[in-house]
Write a protein that binds this DNA or RNA. Structure first.
Lengths: 211, 211
DNA sequence: CCTACCGATCGGTAGG
DNA sequence: CCTACCGATCGGTAGG
C-alpha cells in the first residue's frame, strides 16, 4: 500500500533522477557527484544518498531514467509508424529530432555514456549501457529486416551493415552538433540517411519514403 | 644550450605525456589525475606537477602529445600517397589501421576527448580539441576536393557531405570495436568506406581504388 | 626532483 | 529526510 510518504519519496526520487540524467549527459556518469547533485536540488548530500545506498546504484538508476526518456522520445514515436522502410526512416528522424530538441542538455545520453565507458573495465553500469546500445542497434536492424521482407529494400544488401552506416550518421550528428554548435551537422545526417535509404530501396520502398 | 639536466628533464616529460595520453584515452582528460599518473610512473606527485604547473597545462600538453602521435600514425602515412581518391581512401584506411593497432589503448584519443568535452563549457582544452577535430575534417574534405579536381570523384556531390559520411563510419568503428570488443565493426567501416567511395567515384577514380 | 603539507571535495556512515 | 562526521583523494603550495 502506498502511503503519503512513499508517494512523496518516489516523487523526490524521480526529480533526483531527472536531474542526474541531465547532468550525466553533459559531465558523464562518473563526473556526476552526489554532493553536486544534492546542492543543485537544494537537499543534503546524505538525504539524497539515502535514496540509493551507493553511487553505483545511483548510476544504474540514472541509466534507467535515461532509457525511459529515450524510449518515450525516440522509440515509441517511431514504432507507431507502419513497419517497413517508413519505420526505419522514422527511427532515424526521431533520433535526429531528439538531438535537435535537446531532450538531454548534453546530447544523446547513451552516446555520451557509450563513449565514457567504451574502453573502461567491466562494471554493472558498463554492462547496462552495452545492453541498451545493442538493443538500439537491433531495433534499427529489425526495422531494416522488416522493410526487406516487405520488398521495400533490395535483397542484395545486409541489414546489419545498413544499420551500422545509418548509426554512423546519427552519432556524428550528435557529436558535431554540440562540438561545433552547428545545426548543419544534423542536416548532413538527414541528407545521409535519405540518400542511403533511397539507394538501398526498391521502387516500392522509394514510393513509401518520398511522399 | 641543453645541459645534461634539461635533456633528462625533457625525457622525463615525454614519458609523463606518453602515459598521460594513454590513460586519458581510456579514462578521459578529466579522469586523468596527477596523483595516479605519478604513481604509475613511480615518481612523486609534486615532482610530476613541477613539470607543468597546473592540471590544465598538463591536459594541454597531453593533447599535443596525442596530436603528434595521430599525425605520425594516421596523417603522415596517408599524405605520402599521391593526392586524389587514393589519398582519401588512404586516410580512411590509416585511421582504421590506427584503431586496429590500438595506438591508444582506449581507442582514438580525439574521439574520446571530443565526446568528453562535447557539451561542456568553454575551456582551453576544449578549444584545442575542437581545433584538432576541425583540422581532421578539413584534411578529409581537402582530399575529397583533390580527388574531384582530378576527375576521380563525381562533380555532382559535396565534399563536406562525403567527409561527414566517411567520418561517421570511422567513428562508429572506434566506438563499437571497444564497446562490444568485436573487430567486425572495423570491417563494417571498411566496407562502408569502400562502397561509399566507389559510388561517388568516376570510372577514372574507380580504377585508382580497385588495384 | 623530493617531503610535508594545505583546503576542498569525494563516496559513504552513524545516529536521529 | 537531516546534522555531523569518517578516511581517501583531489589540485596545488612551501621549502628544499
Amino acid at each position: 500500500m502506498p502511503t503519503r510518504n512513499t508517494i512523496k519519496g518516489a516523487r523526490t526520487r524521480e526529480g533526483i533522477l531527472r536531474a542526474a540524467a541531465d547532468i550525466a549527459s553533459v559531465d558523464g556518469l562518473d563526473g556526476l557527484s552526489i554532493g553536486r547533485l544534492a546542492a543543485e536540488l537544494g537537499m543534503s548530500k546524505s538525504g539524497l544518498f539515502a535514496h540509493f545506498g551507493s553511487k553505483e546504484s545511483l548510476q544504474l538508476a540514472t541509466i534507467e531514467e535515461a532509457r525511459n526518456r529515450y524510449v518515450k522520445e525516440v522509440i515509441e514515436p517511431a514504432l507507431s509508424t507502419p513497419s517497413g522502410i517508413t519505420r526505419l526512416y522514422a527511427l532515424c528522424e526521431a533520433f535526429l529530432s531528439y538531438i535537435e530538441r535537446e531532450v538531454f542538455p548534453g546530447g544523446c545520453f547513451f552516446a555520451s555514456a557509450m563513449a565514457e565507458f567504451d574502453a573502461k573495465g567491466p562494471s554493472p553500469a558498463r554492462d547496462r549501457i552495452v545492453e541498451c546500445q545493442e538493443q538500439w542497434m537491433i531495433t534499427l536492424e529489425r526495422a531494416a529486416e522488416g522493410a526487406r521482407t516487405k520488398g521495400e529494400l533490395r535483397d542484395d544488401r545486409d541489414s546489419q551493415q545498413l544499420a551500422f552506416e545509418l548509426e554512423g550518421a546519427l552519432l556524428s550528428a550528435n557529436w558535431y552538433f554540440h562540438l561545433f554548435h552547428d545545426t548543419t551537422n544534423i542536416e548532413r545526417a538527414r541528407h545521409a540517411v535519405r540518400t542511403q535509404l533511397s539507394r538501398e530501396a526498391t521502387p516500392a520502398g522509394l514510393s513509401q519514403i518520398e511522399i
